[in-house]
Amino acid sequence: MFLRRLLTRIATTLVTLLGVAVIVFAVIRIVPGDPVAMMLPPGATEADIARLNAFYGLDKSIPEQFFIWLGGVVQGDFGTSITTRQPVLGLVLSRLPATLELSVMALVIAVVLGGLVALTGTRLRYTRTEGALDVANGMALSVPDFLWGLVLILLFGVLWPVFTISGRVSPNLVPEFATSFFLFESVLRLRFDLWLDLVQHMLMPALALAIPLAAIIGQLLKQSLKETMHLDYVTLARTKGYSENHVILREALRNAVLPTLTLIGVQFTFLIGGTVIIERLFSYEGLGNMAIDAVINRDLPLIQGIVLLFALLFTLVNLAVDLLYAVLNPRLRHA
């Protein structure tokens, strides 16, 4: 039963990815902008253009190009980047860890912040503190992540420069790492000097990504917590002698988390999308920054590779949410 569900899931994922690939492939070839024209110096001859077009396979029809590319992808060959002349797969995988670490860090910050806001708001419901939290939450929610980025740069990079607001790590420390998962590696190796440098770089972009998500989590979780607090089993727990804090944490939280969890899944994919601009803003060497360069340079194979990877990430996040949901909700476990 479980195996069948897993196979269905993989099949739908593949169909989704294929759809994404078709759309991206078509769109970037239809919109104006010719990669070959951008590579050649002014005054190149027609023959030069034709030769380069043929070299990159751009002289064939779009469907033909697509199937050639798809044939490569199936064999693990995502083509060669036009601008860097390196294999797309290698380029993309070298940047993936940076973006993953940033996204996960932002997610953790958002869940912790949003959770604290929701729990505090529930504990102090019907007081002025709840009202103040609601107002702050609304403000955090209505400002998009890139504006938070600019605000943070201004505050903690310029006016009170306590954080480094550019890059992922101090350049002189890069040779210290054996893998591309810098943050993860620094923790595993207990190198807290490296960890501190990384956090100093990553905290601001991660916070910019996290604030709007934290606000959404805080709002929804508080709402469902407050509803749960009126339910009979919560009242029954009160008669047993339990305190307000205990009742919120043990009786209400687990049930109230379920609707929020679905939302976190959806919003996390938006957050990953948000890394594109935030990474640019903070000169953070991740996938998003690479995506912008690829688009500017009309590096068609690279754009395709990055978008496909993003699409894969999104579907994996949704899968993880579904699994977590089943773990938290006993009624779904045997279904």
Binding site: L231, Y233, L236, P330, R331
Partner: peptide, 8 residues
Amino acid sequence: LTALNPAR
């Protein structure tokens, strides 16, 4: 039906 916590 509502007086027992469904998650415990």
